[in-house]
Amino acid sequence: MSTLLMVSSLLLVIGIYGLLTRNNPILMIISIELIFNGANLNLVHFSRLYNSMDGISLALFSIAIAAIEVALGLGIFLALYKLERKTELRKFRRLSDEEVSA
């Protein structure tokens, strides 16, 4: 039983690692999906354990929501790409406190 928990927390860690290191928005969206799926795995597992439908319903909802968010994220990314012609997120530094020094 604890092995499943291990797998989902592994998924969580990988997702977070992917977020921190990858700079391409699409890859970041993928790693976010990993986190979501880790959570879903947990939910399904526990609802199976407690033999109740709550967990599964929440998992279903979260999948739907994840889909919405991916669509939205890609939309924003595409609009940004059209304008900026570059995908390196690190380049987008206009909104910051850097140059607006005292």
Binding site: L20, N23, L89, R90, F92, R93, R94, S96, D97, E98
Partner: peptide
């Protein structure tokens, strides 16, 4: 203030 470098990472 300088903490906010604007870098997503």
């Amino acid at each position: 203030r300088r903490l906010q470098t604007g870098e997503i990472q």
